[in-house]
């Protein structure tokens, strides 16, 4: 299981803040965000830290993994940031100043057919704001948000960008192996990952097309597509059983050690020391 780390704030502190701080009836900055859904969503995020759902067919999975780290460590900071962002249209989180574009503000609360993200207005704001602020080379040709870009390269995240985001908005230190195109050179991946999860939160950058096939072609692009938080891993009878978190839920899969090596492109270990 994931090693316990001392958090910057607690769920209780975040709930107390929400009880005391009355959120405005509407925001002139986020015209589609409904305050009731916004507040309910914040409460859910801090009471159930696995609840973050980056949405169906979006490219928000990296921000989902980032949210896991944020909410694990500083739920009060998250709630304070979100309420300030809602009320003022700009806010600072862990010394990073966020001022989302008008197009992003207009779309938050209005994303459709993304599963339960449709009614999670705080998460829509959070994911869109993060994607609007942090840029990597994958976003080079699409830097400005247009409706529908949550599914496009505008929201994509390469490994270096992910690690940079973790370092900037969380107190975690990141040590990473792997890259966007070349798999990490690790002899025994299972043993390596078992060691990593003992000492911190481990994020995997994987090629999801192999384990979650979307067509019947035999040839699959060998590129990573998805970020997950690894929770446990064990090897039995030459079969690796992984439990990971993504999309608001834990998933258990079984793969051979060969497939495991094939799907992992990046391993980011996040520790507080």
């Amino acid at each position: 299981m994931v090693a316990e780390t001392p958090p910057l704030s607690t769920t209780q502190q975040a709930l107390q803040y929400l009880d005391v701080h009355k959120i405005k009836d509407s925001s002139s900055f986020w015209i589609h965000v409904k305050p009731k859904l916004f507040t309910e969503n914040l409460r859910l995020n801090i009471t159930d830290i696995l609840s973050f759902y980056p949405g169906r067919s979006t490219n928000f999975c990296a921000y989902g993994a980032l949210s896991y780290l944020v909410i694990h460590n500083d739920p009060l900071g998250y709630v304070q940031f979100m309420t300030e962002l809602f009320e003022n249209g700009e806010a600072t989180f862990h010394q990073v100043f966020f001022k989302p574009s008008k197009a992003v503000m207009l779309s938050a609360g209005d994303l459709r057919f993304k599963g339960v993200l449709d009614i999670r207005h705080a998460e829509q704001m959070w994911f869109l704001t993060l994607a609007d602020h942090f840029k990597g080379y994958l976003n080079f040709f699409n830097r400005n948000y247009n409706p529908g870009d949550e599914n496009s390269f505008w929201a994509a995240t390469n490994l270096a960008k992910f690690n940079r985001m973790v370092k900037k908005i969380t107190p975690y230190k990141v040590s990473c192996v792997g890259s966007d195109l070349v798999r990490p050179w690790v002899k025994d991946m299972t043993a390596y990952l078992q060691k990593r999860i003992k000492n911190g939160i481990t994020v995997l950058y994987i090629n999801n097309r192999i384990i979650h096939k979307k067509n019947h072609d035999k040839i699959k692009y060998s590129i990573p597509t998805h970020y997950v938080i690894l929770e446990s891993i064990k090897l039995e009878n030459n079969l690796v059983t992984l439990i990971y978190w993504d999309y608001g839920n834990r998933t258990q899969i079984q793969v051979s050690p060969k497939v495991l090596r094939k799907i992992i492109f990046g391993v980011s270990q996040c520790t507080l020391s």
Partner: peptide, 24 residues
């Protein structure tokens, strides 16, 4: 349930529980 091979002989089932989704 999804068939993952061309001949539709291999099935991938996702069993969804409250705490965990099992994929076999």
């Amino acid at each position: 349930a999804a068939f993952t091979d061309r001949l539709l002989q291999t099935v991938s089932v996702e069993l969804i529980t409250d705490s965990l989704t099992y994929i076999y």
